Computed example of a mutant assay.
Amino acid sequence: MATHPPEPPVYARLGQIGARSPLVIAVPHAGRLYPPEMLALARLPQHALETIEDRHADLLVADAVQAGAVAIVARMARACIDLNRDEREVDPVLLGEPVGPGVLLTSAKVAGGLGVIPSRIAAGGAVWARPLGRGEIERRMAEVHRPYHAAIAQAMDEAAATHGVAILIDCHSMPPLGGRNGTARLVVGDRHGRSAESRFVAAAIEAAKREGTAVAHNHPYAGGHTLDRHGAPRAGRHAIQIEVDRSLYLDAMLRTPTDGIARMRQLIAVIAAALEDEARGYLLAAE
């Protein structure tokens, strides 16, 4: 029987051994592990750092995993390292030394303090008491970022080898959009068409609408590094991002799960099933 090596404590691989489904789910921002050594470097207390979590988004995927999907779920807190950012999206202030041109990636996320290692957050400003330095940054990449993405890649490889196609859902939660975007409660992103064929995006959107959920496409969230890294439509690897309104499954403080979690678990499972159905049609069309 095929086995996987013991998983590191920074992520969990959920689902049975082997690819029962072409579907892989990633959950990068729901980690609640705050190691003491990390907190010792932080200027802010843990309750402030928790504000950038996708609070309890890991609970959303349980029904889809039960139905056959594999899920790679981050355990490490987003405040320690953001797994939906490129390794080079580092705020130079965290290095504490000059950096040559072309070494780092600049982006709006980095400028806003939310690079691969968050440097500033709305709940309190600067995250760290002093620059972390290259050694600490590299340690987090080697121990957390790379193993997490290697696990996604392995699961995608297994799905593609077994089913002829692999589909990734990068699962997130978002604050309520309010009056923006037609009060959408779920946003499907595909990097504006670059990370998945349109048929898979349409299948996800239509499935959510059938469940009575207002959906937006790419706005205000089009997806990030995970889709760029693992989506390769021409190679039969399709990746979409799903953002779920937290108020649909958390209390008024957006911290504690409510009875709404059952409906959201069902919603993600319905979307997953629709993507599997679309995968079968995709393979028939390719024959």
Rank of each mutant, 00 (worst) to 15 (best):
P92W: 14
P92C: 15
V93H: 06
L95P: 10
V99A: 08
V99M: 06
V99K: 06
L105K: 14
L105Q: 12
T106V: 14
K109N: 13
V110C: 08
A111N: 09
A111V: 08
G112I: 13
G112R: 15
R120A: 14
G124Y: 05
G124E: 08
G125W: 04
V127R: 03
A129E: 02
R130W: 07
P131G: 05
G133E: 01
R134H: 08
G135R: 12
E136T: 11
R139N: 07
M141N: 01
M141C: 10
E143M: 15
V144F: 14
H145E: 10
H145Y: 09
R146D: 09
P147D: 04
Y148L: 06
H149P: 10
H149M: 08
A153Q: 12
A153V: 03
Q154F: 02
D157K: 15
D157G: 15
A161Q: 15
V165P: 12
A166I: 08
I167G: 09
D170Q: 12
P175I: 09
P176L: 12
G178K: 08
G178E: 03
V188G: 10
G189E: 06
G189Q: 03
R194N: 13
R199C: 02
F200L: 05
V201M: 00
A203G: 03
A203R: 08
A203H: 04
E206A: 10
A208S: 09
A208V: 02
K209W: 00
E211L: 02
G212M: 02
T213M: 01
V215H: 04
H217W: 00
N218V: 01
H219A: 01
Y221N: 02
A222M: 01
H225K: 01
